[in-house]
Protein backbone atom coordinates (compact mmCIF):
# COMPACT_ATOMS: atom_id res chain seq x y z
CA UNK A 1 0.00 0.00 0.00
CA UNK A 2 2.71 2.50 0.99
CA UNK A 3 4.28 2.47 -2.44
CA UNK A 4 1.14 3.00 -4.47
CA UNK A 5 1.92 5.34 -7.33
CA UNK A 6 -1.53 5.85 -8.71
CA UNK A 7 -3.44 8.62 -7.03
CA UNK A 8 -6.67 7.63 -8.71
CA UNK A 9 -6.30 4.04 -7.56
CA UNK A 10 -5.93 5.23 -3.97
CA UNK A 11 -8.96 7.45 -4.36
CA UNK A 12 -10.99 4.64 -5.84
CA UNK A 13 -10.11 2.40 -2.93
CA UNK A 14 -10.81 5.03 -0.33
CA UNK A 15 -14.14 5.76 -1.93
CA UNK A 16 -15.01 2.09 -2.05
CA UNK A 17 -14.09 1.29 1.51
CA UNK A 18 -14.06 4.59 3.37
CA UNK A 19 -13.27 3.59 6.96
CA UNK A 20 -12.19 -0.01 6.52
CA UNK A 21 -9.55 0.12 3.77
CA UNK A 22 -9.10 -3.45 2.62
CA UNK A 23 -8.90 -5.01 -0.79
CA UNK A 24 -10.52 -8.08 -2.26
CA UNK A 25 -8.68 -11.34 -1.60
CA UNK A 26 -6.73 -11.37 -4.84
CA UNK A 27 -5.79 -7.69 -4.92
CA UNK A 28 -2.40 -7.50 -3.23
CA UNK A 29 0.63 -5.24 -3.17
CA UNK A 30 2.90 -5.94 -6.11
CA UNK A 31 5.67 -3.55 -5.09
CA UNK A 32 5.00 -0.27 -6.81
CA UNK A 33 1.28 -0.84 -7.15
CA UNK A 34 -1.60 -3.10 -6.33
CA UNK A 35 -2.20 -6.03 -8.63
CA UNK A 36 -3.90 -9.38 -8.75
CA UNK A 37 -2.11 -12.22 -6.92
CA UNK A 38 -2.45 -14.55 -9.91
CA UNK A 39 -0.65 -12.01 -12.12
CA UNK A 40 2.39 -11.83 -9.82
CA UNK A 41 4.81 -12.97 -12.51
CA UNK A 42 3.92 -10.02 -14.70
CA UNK A 43 4.90 -7.65 -11.90
CA UNK A 44 8.11 -9.38 -10.82
CA UNK A 45 9.25 -9.46 -14.46
CA UNK A 46 8.05 -5.89 -15.10
CA UNK A 47 5.91 -7.04 -18.01
CA UNK A 48 3.49 -4.12 -18.13
CA UNK A 49 3.48 -4.53 -21.90
CA UNK A 50 1.59 -7.82 -21.60
CA UNK A 51 -1.59 -5.82 -21.01
CA UNK A 52 -0.69 -2.21 -21.83
CA UNK A 53 1.34 -2.87 -25.00
CA UNK A 54 4.25 -0.74 -23.77
CA UNK A 55 6.79 -1.05 -20.95
CA UNK A 56 5.96 2.27 -19.32
CA UNK A 57 2.19 2.67 -19.65
CA UNK A 58 0.55 6.07 -19.49
CA UNK A 59 -2.92 4.92 -20.45
CA UNK A 60 -5.35 2.09 -19.77
CA UNK A 61 -4.94 -1.33 -21.32
CA UNK A 62 -7.05 -1.95 -24.42
CA UNK A 63 -10.42 -3.66 -23.99
CA UNK A 64 -9.23 -6.86 -25.66
CA UNK A 65 -5.96 -7.23 -23.72
CA UNK A 66 -7.40 -9.62 -21.08
CA UNK A 67 -8.71 -11.80 -23.88
CA UNK A 68 -5.17 -12.74 -24.95
CA UNK A 69 -5.19 -15.20 -22.04
CA UNK A 70 -8.81 -15.40 -20.87
CA UNK A 71 -11.62 -16.81 -23.03
CA UNK A 72 -14.98 -15.12 -22.59
CA UNK A 73 -16.72 -18.30 -23.79
CA UNK A 74 -15.06 -20.37 -21.07
CA UNK A 75 -15.82 -17.72 -18.46
CA UNK A 76 -19.43 -17.70 -19.57
CA UNK A 77 -19.56 -21.47 -19.04
CA UNK A 78 -18.06 -21.12 -15.58
CA UNK A 79 -20.57 -18.49 -14.50
CA UNK A 80 -23.62 -20.00 -16.20
CA UNK A 81 -26.90 -19.73 -14.30
CA UNK A 82 -30.02 -21.81 -14.58
CA UNK A 83 -33.73 -21.25 -15.16
CA UNK A 84 -35.04 -17.72 -14.68
CA UNK A 85 -31.50 -16.61 -13.81
CA UNK A 86 -30.10 -17.68 -17.19
CA UNK A 87 -29.54 -14.11 -18.37
CA UNK A 88 -27.90 -13.02 -15.11
CA UNK A 89 -24.65 -14.62 -16.27
CA UNK A 90 -22.24 -11.66 -16.08
CA UNK A 91 -20.17 -13.04 -18.98
CA UNK A 92 -23.20 -13.59 -21.22
CA UNK A 93 -25.95 -11.33 -19.95
CA UNK A 94 -29.32 -10.13 -21.08
CA UNK A 95 -28.37 -6.55 -21.95
CA UNK A 96 -24.94 -6.90 -23.57
CA UNK A 97 -24.30 -10.60 -24.22
CA UNK A 98 -20.54 -11.29 -24.13
CA UNK A 99 -19.61 -7.73 -25.15
CA UNK A 100 -18.92 -6.09 -21.78
CA UNK A 101 -15.20 -5.16 -21.64
CA UNK A 102 -13.61 -7.04 -18.72
CA UNK A 103 -12.34 -3.90 -16.99
CA UNK A 104 -15.88 -2.51 -16.65
CA UNK A 105 -16.30 -4.94 -13.72
CA UNK A 106 -12.80 -6.19 -12.92
CA UNK A 107 -10.02 -3.84 -11.82
CA UNK A 108 -6.43 -5.10 -12.12
CA UNK A 109 -5.01 -2.37 -9.89
CA UNK A 110 -8.10 -1.30 -7.92
CA UNK A 111 -11.32 -2.71 -6.53
CA UNK A 112 -14.41 -2.60 -8.73
CA UNK A 113 -18.03 -3.74 -8.62
CA UNK A 114 -19.96 -5.64 -11.29
CA UNK A 115 -21.83 -3.14 -13.49
CA UNK A 116 -24.97 -5.26 -12.93
CA UNK A 117 -24.99 -3.68 -9.46
CA UNK A 118 -25.73 -0.28 -10.99
CA UNK A 119 -29.36 -1.44 -11.17
CA UNK A 120 -29.74 -4.96 -9.80
CA UNK A 121 -29.38 -6.59 -6.39
CA UNK A 122 -28.21 -9.93 -7.89
CA UNK A 123 -25.70 -11.82 -5.76
CA UNK A 124 -22.33 -12.71 -7.28
CA UNK A 125 -20.83 -14.74 -4.46
CA UNK A 126 -17.61 -15.68 -6.31
CA UNK A 127 -16.84 -12.11 -7.41
CA UNK A 128 -13.46 -10.79 -6.23
CA UNK A 129 -13.48 -7.06 -5.69
Amino acid sequence: MKSLISCSAVMAMLLAFSSAVMAGDTLVSQGKMMGRSYHQQLYTKHQCATCHGVDKPVSRAADDSCLKCHSVDKLAQQTARQGDEQWQNPHNNLHYGKDVPCTECHGEHAVKQPICKDCHTFKFSKFQE
Binding site: D63, H95, Y96, D99, V100, P101, E104, I115
Partner: peptide
Protein backbone atom coordinates in the same frame (compact mmCIF):
# COMPACT_ATOMS: atom_id res chain seq x y z
CA UNK B 1 -20.01 4.03 -23.46
CA UNK B 2 -18.11 0.75 -23.03
CA UNK B 3 -21.17 -1.28 -24.02
CA UNK B 4 -23.53 -1.09 -26.99
CA UNK B 5 -27.25 -0.39 -26.95
CA UNK B 6 -27.45 2.84 -24.94
CA UNK B 7 -30.67 3.34 -23.03
CA UNK B 8 -32.44 1.01 -25.49
CA UNK B 9 -30.57 -1.97 -24.01
CA UNK B 10 -32.29 -1.42 -20.65
Amino acid sequence: MAVYGGNSAI
